[in-house]
């Protein structure tokens, strides 16, 4: 598991644009590229496209490193968001859906899929509340209605758009849109209840 503290240090050092920046950026790449490539591959489905996404994302990470706010954002999540957005854009220009059919894991074995794709155990450096937040999220995902959970996992992990989801799940666009929206709202509400701040 990538250690947020190390990644944060390397990002800040890269942003400094001094004599240590290239070495820090290289370490950042070596540490995080395999995970980020895995994220990209699940969305664009093709190895050469995923490497293109990885390249473009690291150009962005290098350029935007100085706007990364270490107090506000978790660094690994920040990098993952850059890769996912880039991969989603790439996917939409390459009509990936015709190249390879989606994995159906999320439909047939939602719990197994959640555990294969995500790491729920706490990291050594985790604060207590982050560990609990991960537990709650895992718990709340399994409590969602099946269709909501499937929509969220497919959209998040494979980068499917509303219309791709609709085609894949063979449901009207409006229905799928409301599953996604309701799924996210329910997820938030469930986690908030766990946190004890629900309305």
């Amino acid at each position: 598991m990538l250690d947020d503290k190390t990644i944060k240090g390397l990002l800040l050092r890269s942003a400094a644009r001094d004599e240590g920046s290239a070495v820090a950026f290289e370490r950042l790449y070596k540490m995080s590229a395999p995970l980020l490539l895995g994220v990209a591959k699940r969305i664009v489905q093709r190895a050469e496209l995923a490497e293109e996404v990885l390249h473009d994302s690291f150009v962005k990470i290098w350029d935007a490193a100085d706007s990364f706010d270490p107090l506000a954002t978790q660094p690994v999540a920040w990098m993952v968001a850059i890769v996912r957005n880039r991969a989603i854009d790439t996917r939409s220009c390459h009509d990936v859906s015709r190249v390879q059919s989606y994995h159906d894991d999320a439909l047939e074995d939602p719990d197994g899929t959640l555990d294969r794709l995500f790491e729920w155990a706490e990291g050594a450096d985790d604060l207590e509340d982050r560990r609990r937040a991960a537990d709650w999220l895992r718990e709340c995902l399994t409590r969602l209605q099946g269709v909501e959970r499937q929509s969220l996992v497919l959209a998040y992990v494979q980068g499917l758009s509303h219309s791709e989801l609709a085609a894949h799940l063979e449901k009207p666009l409006g229905t799928v849109k409301s599953w996604v929206r309701r799924g996210m709202a329910n997820l938030r509400q469930c986690v908030e209840t766990c946190m004890g701040i629900a309305r």
Binding site: H55, L117, V191
Partner: peptide, 24 residues
């Protein structure tokens, strides 16, 4: 983001070819 930020598992990792870093 503090509510929904799942961490990806190591199992999804894939090794990029050395070309990506060389080009960067």
């Amino acid at each position: 983001e503090s509510i929904v930020s799942p961490r990806y598992s190591k199992m999804i990792e894939a090794q990029p070819s050395p070309r990506v870093w060389q080009r960067l």
